[in-house]
Every structure is written in C-alpha cells, then in structure tokens.
Computed example of a mutant assay.
Amino acid sequence: MAMIIQPMPEPMVVVQPAMVQPVMVQPIHQPVIQQPPGPVVIRPPLKDRPGRMKCTCCHQEMVTVTRGVNGVLTWTIFGTLLVCGIWPLCLIPFCVKSCKDIEHTCPSCQNVVYIHKRM
C-alpha cells in the first residue's frame, strides 16, 4: 500500500486591529490682554472744503489746501456738450469748480493726501 503524504495546511492567523482609544485634545488657552480703549479718531470725509487730518508723508496735523483739477465729470460734460453741437459752451466745465475733482494737499510738504472725485 502506498502512502500519500499531503502537506498540512498552514494554520490561519487572524489579526484584529487594536482598539484605538480616543484622544482628547484640549485647546491651549492664550491669555487675553485687554488694552484700555484709546482715542477713536473719526476723520470726516474730505469733500469740497479743506479738512483737518494727519499727513501721510510728514505725519503732521494740518488743515488741507484744496484746488480743483479736471476729472472724469469735467470731461464727460465737455464731451456731451461737444457732441450735442453746443461747442462754444463746452468749455464751461473747465472754468466751474463744482465740475472739477478736488485735490487736498498738505501745506508743509505739498504732498497730495486725498482727491475727492465727483464721478
């Protein structure tokens, strides 16, 4: 009688993942430093008239100097009057200050600090 030898099957190993414990993360608390409220500077919007403000260039408190400069509104009125055929009157916007943009400058350093645009 011939004997048949069969290899033994390898034992099956079952690996279960380890139970992961939930990790509690506590936020790091930064100390809150409260400063006393300082003076609130509310700058009025600069329009047609000179206004008080701090110069961005020389850092001095001053009252601005204003002058009219030709802007978009000036050229729009000029173009409209020219196209309508009223060519003698189309130069009026260049003479009227209420049609021009207002340029605010610092009196000490002559730096332009703000331009109020009409359009």
Rank of each mutant, 00 (worst) to 15 (best):
V113F: 00
C57G: 00
D101H: 11
I77H: 04
Q30R: 11
K97P: 05
V40R: 12
V113C: 12
P88M: 04
R52I: 07
R67C: 02
P36H: 09
M53A: 09
N111F: 10
T66R: 02
M3Y: 03
T56K: 10
P107G: 11
S108I: 09
K100F: 03
F78C: 13
L91N: 01
K47S: 04
H59W: 03
P93N: 08
T66M: 01
V69W: 00
N111M: 09
M53K: 01
F94M: 13
G79R: 01
C84D: 06
P17Y: 04
V40N: 08
P50E: 03
I92A: 15
K97V: 12
P22F: 06
V25N: 06
C57M: 05
G68E: 04
M53F: 04
I86P: 00
F94T: 06
P22N: 07
M119G: 02
D101M: 10
V72G: 04
F78T: 10
Q21K: 11
C109K: 08
Q110Y: 05
P7H: 06
H59V: 01
G51I: 02
L91I: 15
K100W: 03
F94E: 06
T74N: 08
P9L: 08
K97A: 14
Q6P: 00
M19Y: 05
Q30I: 03
Q60K: 14
H104P: 11
C57Q: 12
P37N: 10
I92V: 15
L46T: 01
I5C: 05
C58T: 07
T105M: 11
P36G: 11
M1E: 09
T64K: 06
C57A: 12
R67S: 13
V20K: 13
M8L: 12
T66P: 02
E61I: 02
P31M: 09
V32P: 00
I86E: 07
G85S: 07
M119V: 00
I77P: 01
I5F: 08
P17G: 04
M62E: 02
L81K: 03
C99F: 15
V13P: 00
L81D: 05
T105I: 11
Q34K: 12
I4N: 09
P7L: 07
R43L: 10
P37M: 14
H59A: 09
G85N: 05
